[in-house]
Computed example of a mutant assay.
Amino acid sequence: MGMPSILITEYFVSTFNPYISEHNLLAEACGMVISLIKTFRASSTNIMVTVSRYLANTIKKIFANVDIVVIDEDKYLDEVELLKDLVDFVVAIAPPTHLVAIAEIVKNKFLGPSFNIVKSLSNKYDSLVILRKCGIDVPRTLICSNSNECKIRELDPPVVVKPSMMAGSECVYIINDLNKCKKYVDMAIKCDPTRRAVIQEYIPGFHGSISAIFHDGVPRLTSLNLQLISIDDNKVRFYGNILPLRSTRHVYWTLDVINKMMCLSELKGYIGLDVVWNDSGMYVVEVNPRFTTSGIGIIELYPGLGRIILGREKPQNTYLGKEVSGYAYIVKKVNSMKHIINYDKLCLEGLAYGIAKTYNEAIERVLNSNPGAIKTLPYDIKSSSLISSDNY
């Protein structure tokens, strides 16, 4: 039997056009693709990667032995449907509407949850309804398609306003005055491909994410990652991660959330959960049923992640901080990268990531790469609760 073949397809890298695309998304997108290529190449697989014509030479510079497929940016889903027949598995990173479409197109070749689970978890409202039924703490959340019909007064300020089917921090706002909320709801609705907005109570505390890899419905490897999130002028901006956190309480909360996730059937592959925690506990505020930026750091620390995703290694609910030493950091190098005309350089150098021996060293690496990344964090990045070295 020959080596299995995998198609890695990232929407932004595959459809990038420097004349119309948002340049500030490129560094993260390229970083995720590069990391996935590394881990699956280390897992002895044949790799095919979709790229736009503008990035083909960029990816070829670092991976000469990878099958680079240049696709028509305007026919992305059609191209994926054709390519799926040439491989054994598909790993996809895409905005929610496109991710749902890919899961339906590639069916059981998708290295992720089933189509029905992807569809449910990609919606920022439906996903929280499902998690609440699983016994997971989530914030109070509303959904509406018309700001005049939103029952915003049911929530206490501040609130988070965001599109229901968008990825990342685009069109996400923190609003303290409910009298001004209508304007931001309209802005979020306009951003959303389904023309709906989610209004969610804001949970004060530390912002992070959980990365969990499932196989056969069982969690195999889990990590809690600190998110470098700024709140400035009502806008939420993502700058990077430091991972994994290791305090006893944080690990307990994290594994409790993941164990409760098992109330869902057909869980498979990498799943990301955005979380906030404080003294009251941990709350899941959003779900990404796909590989996320935190995965770049996980692969730095655990290069064999691809083998777990493929099911070749089957650890039982192992926590990353127990398996490896040190901390990974990922950070956008500049606050705004739109002014960088050289997208080749932006793709390869716009994101800084690596390994530090200690948590404090990871902070220093972040500061050296982008001092602004922790300037307006809504929490104290040097809190003793984050650098605890308790045993668990």
Rank of each mutant, 00 (worst) to 15 (best):
M282N: 04
S43M: 10
L305A: 15
P113G: 10
K133S: 15
L26H: 08
N57K: 12
F16D: 00
I271S: 03
Y252I: 10
F12N: 10
Y379P: 08
I242M: 12
S164D: 01
D274M: 13
V276K: 04
V366L: 06
F115Y: 15
T292P: 05
P204V: 09
S384A: 12
Y202Q: 06
I34K: 10
A352L: 03
K332Q: 07
P158C: 11
V49Q: 00
M1K: 11
D74K: 13
R196I: 01
L142C: 05
Y329M: 10
G321T: 01
T39D: 07
I8A: 09
V172K: 00
G240Q: 09
C144R: 04
M337L: 14
R132W: 00
K180F: 11
Y125R: 02
G205K: 00
L99E: 03
M165Y: 00
S388C: 09
P157Y: 04
Y319K: 11
A212C: 15
V138S: 08
G135I: 08
L305R: 14
V129Y: 13
R220S: 15
E201Y: 02
M337E: 14
I299E: 06
Y173M: 02
I213R: 11
T293W: 02
L7D: 07
R41H: 13
R195N: 15
I299V: 13
I174E: 02
M32L: 13
P371M: 12
V49R: 00
I210A: 01
R246S: 06
K332L: 11
L226Q: 02
S145F: 06
F214P: 05
A212P: 04
N335R: 09
